[in-house]
Simulated scan of single mutants.
Amino acid sequence: MLGFYRTYTTPFKEEIPALVEDFFLRVPFFKRFLRFFGRYLYTEISLRKSKKLEKITAQHKRILWIQWVDSYLGDSLMDLSSRILLQDKEIDLLTKENVANIYQNDTIFKHIFTNPEQCNSNQYDLLIIDSYRHRSLKVLGKDLLQLPHITLYGYYNVNDFNRLYFSFFRINQLLPTKYSENNIYKIAKPLLPITQQDEAIVSSFNLPNNFITIVIGAANIERNFNQWDAVIDKIFTQHIANNIVLVGAKNSIIEAEKIQSNYPNKIINMVDRISFNQTAQVIKKSRLLICADGGLLHAANAVKTPVMALFYYIEPMVRLIKINPSYSLLDKNDINNISVINIIEKIKKLENKTR
């Protein structure tokens, strides 16, 4: 049926963590097929003058990578980090404005665009299109839509899967000379630029040695854990760490100030004081990161700082990676059902594992 299997089957042979059966249970067949059929027709019409390729070859020197649909920082990091496999190419990125800043000064992306009109089709040999969705294709002008293309996800539409491993295995599949599966697992991690200026700014805060970083707040309420004060009490009373650095976004400023007031000499509050990339540098300097599922979890994976992560509903295997030590706790009903005692136990196990 027009390749409907592509909505739930990866285009490569390697297996990745993906909740396909859960996807089937949550979304009825008829709804899935109608969604696919609409995308199929739109894609066939939109890309009728574009040749779909199965390999990225030596003749593809200038590439425009389009990531327009998934604009969360974490999703973006997972999707785009496989660019490390294309270091011999000149690659520009077209993405949403809210994620573009984290790729400034990137060593692989030469130019970052947030408006399709900034992209000159004459400068490119190939497009990498994130997926065959209306939102990805409709923003592109007719000149760009005539360029040869490959697609990262195509029609793949499973809700929860390990995007990082999908991206790496998909780009690897398109290369003339492939890495082995084991080698991909050894190198696959988020790729996040941290500049010398970022390092200098973080260094200016004179952070203590041997601290733990905790992320306060969340992008949405389902991931917002509200017992960090109790976790921090246990960390200090059980002498797990002498200092904690709090990081997070603007929506957690009040909570962070309240927590810091309990331990003014032991807690450094950096919530909403530094950029995402600079926060990654703070995490890099810390012993471990404790957080709920979110963008900074992937920043920790980028700098290979061990992670103790809390999850609501989403299985940890679709977020965590093999090469960074991690433990996790999951509650499918409410993230705040996760016990503080269990969190402390996992922190201790992680500390023992990474010594």
Rank of each mutant, 00 (worst) to 15 (best):
W228H: 15
L191N: 15
K234T: 05
I187K: 15
L164C: 06
V202I: 09
K189G: 10
L174M: 12
F236Y: 13
N242D: 13
S167C: 13
N220V: 14
N210I: 09
L164Y: 14
Q238Y: 08
A249H: 00
N226Y: 09
A219W: 13
I244C: 02
D229W: 03
I221C: 04
N183F: 13
N209M: 13
Y165D: 02
L192K: 09
Q238H: 10
I235D: 05
I221M: 08
N206K: 08
L175E: 14
I187F: 09
L175P: 11
R163F: 04
A219V: 04
A249I: 00
N210E: 13
A241Y: 00
P193I: 03
I194A: 04
L174D: 15
K189V: 09
V247N: 02
I201Q: 07
S180F: 00
V247Y: 03
I212D: 03
V245C: 02
I240L: 11
K186T: 14
S180C: 10
I240N: 02
Q197N: 12
Q196N: 13
V245A: 06
I187S: 08
V231I: 03
R170T: 15
E222H: 14
L207C: 00
I254R: 12
L192Q: 11
I216Q: 07
S252P: 01
G217K: 08
R163G: 00
Q197L: 02
K234F: 06
R163P: 03
N159Y: 15
S167L: 02
N226C: 02
A219L: 12
N243A: 00
N206Y: 08
F236R: 13
I212A: 04
F168N: 09
I212V: 15
L207R: 07
K178L: 14
K186W: 11
Q238N: 14
G248K: 01
S180A: 13
R223S: 13
I171G: 11
N224Q: 13
R163Y: 00
L192S: 06
P208W: 01
S252C: 10
F166N: 00
Q197H: 10
F169D: 12
V215W: 02
V158M: 06
V215C: 08
